[in-house]
Computed example of a mutant assay.
Amino acid sequence: MTDAYATFAQDSFAGRTVLVTGAASGMGFETARAFLSKGAEVVLCDRDAEGLSKRHDELKGIGASSHEVVADMGDPNSIRRMFDYCDANLARLDNVVTCAAIITAKRIPEQDWAHWQRVLGVNLLGTFFTVQGAVQRMQGSPNGGNIVCVASDAGVHGGGGLIADTAYAASKAGTLSLVKSVARELAGKKVRINALNPGPTDSPMHSHVDQALKDRIAANLPIRRMGQPDDMAAAILFLCSDAASFIYGAALDVDGGSMFR
């Protein structure tokens, strides 16, 4: 286990439950592993059934119990089944982290209607309906809950078609607005929601980016390296922890300094 989580006690999330979407790889998988290592009961969700099963097997023996649920965030019926599983198998739902996303890098002439529908369907609509399901359950709990929606620095400065395209950037900008809107509506109701803004991250999601470009990106970041999935997972742990109890409706930049604002 990486030292990125050493700040958190082994039992930091003991007795708490976490739902993580996009958990078959990259940031989602690392987030699930981080929560498990700190005592949480975790439900891993992903549309990649084979990858999810392999990753779930890797987590056996780490921390508390874990579950796997095949779910496509672009399908509302699948999202409902995901929450049905949680209702049937968890005592309550304390934390939800939306890591599931499609990243695309198409130039404007290559982006058709179907492309936009799929990207927005997973990245924005899927995020909203996951948040909706979480809110419905957390509002009924005396403990409330925490929601973290993974956005992107592309949602702030836009995409250029090289690493991320217009559709992806727009979906992540929408996620940032979604978090603020939900936070306004939930004010005073014991449910916290925040966004995570990852910068350039070396993860399977960026497998379409060649190493030479990754090296150039890293050289141009103030911190001089690409982010790693555990950098993001550690920040998510913090946002869901009691230490972040006064952070609400915010977007936390975890980007190596790519977005000085």
Score class of each variant (00 low, 15 high):
Ala6Ile: 09
Ala6Ser: 14
Ala6Cys: 04
Ala9Arg: 14
Gln10Thr: 10
Ala14Lys: 14
Gly15His: 11
Gly15Glu: 12
Val18Met: 14
Gly22Leu: 14
Ala24Tyr: 04
Thr31His: 12
Ala32Val: 15
Phe35Glu: 03
Leu36His: 14
Gly39Thr: 02
Ala40Cys: 14
Val42Glu: 10
Val42Ile: 12
Val43Arg: 08
Leu44Ser: 00
Asp48Phe: 13
Ser53Asn: 13
His56Ser: 15
His56Arg: 15
Glu58Ser: 06
Glu58Gly: 02
Leu59Lys: 07
Leu59Ser: 10
Gly61Phe: 00
Gly63Arg: 01
Gly63Cys: 03
Ala64Asp: 07
His67Phe: 11
His67Met: 04
Pro76Arg: 10
Asn77His: 13
Ile79Pro: 08
Arg80Asp: 15
Phe83Ile: 10
Ala91Thr: 11
Ala91Glu: 13
Leu93Phe: 03
Leu93Gly: 01
Asp94Val: 09
Asp94Gly: 13
Asp94Arg: 04
Asp94Leu: 14
Asn95Gly: 00
Val96Phe: 06
Val96Ala: 05
Ala100Asn: 11
Ile103Gln: 03
Gln111Pro: 05
Asp112Asn: 12
Ala114Gln: 13
His115Ala: 04
Trp116Phe: 11
Val122Thr: 08
Leu124Glu: 01
Leu125His: 07
Thr130Cys: 14
Thr130Gln: 05
Gln132Arg: 02
Ala134His: 00
Ala134Asn: 01
Val135His: 01
Gln136Leu: 14
Gln136Cys: 09
Gln139Asp: 12
Gln139Glu: 15
Gln139Ala: 12
Gln139Trp: 09
Asn146Leu: 00
Val148Arg: 05
Ala151Val: 04
Ala151Glu: 04
Ala154His: 08
Val156Met: 05
His157Phe: 15
Gly158Asp: 02
Gly158Gln: 01
Gly161Pro: 00
Tyr168Pro: 00
Ala170Gly: 06
Ala170Pro: 05
Lys172Arg: 03
Ala173Ser: 13
Ser177Asp: 09
Leu178Lys: 11
Leu178Gln: 09
Val179Met: 11
Glu185Ile: 02
Ala187Pro: 03
Lys189Trp: 05
Lys190Asp: 12
Val191Ser: 03
Val191Arg: 00
Leu196Thr: 01
Asn197Trp: 03
Asn197Ser: 13
Gly199Val: 02
Pro200His: 12
Met205Cys: 04
Ser207Arg: 08
Ser207Ile: 06
Gln211Val: 07
Arg216His: 04
Ala218Tyr: 10
Pro222Met: 11
Ile223Gln: 06
Arg225Pro: 05
Asp231Pro: 03
Asp231Val: 04
Met232Gln: 15
Ala235Thr: 05
Ser241Asn: 08
Ser241Val: 09
Asp242Thr: 15
Ala243Phe: 08
Ala244Asn: 12
Ile247Arg: 03
Tyr248Ala: 05
Leu252Glu: 03
Val254Gln: 09
Val254Trp: 07
Asp255Met: 11
Asp255Arg: 13
Gly256Glu: 08
Met259Val: 08
Met259Cys: 09
Arg261Trp: 01
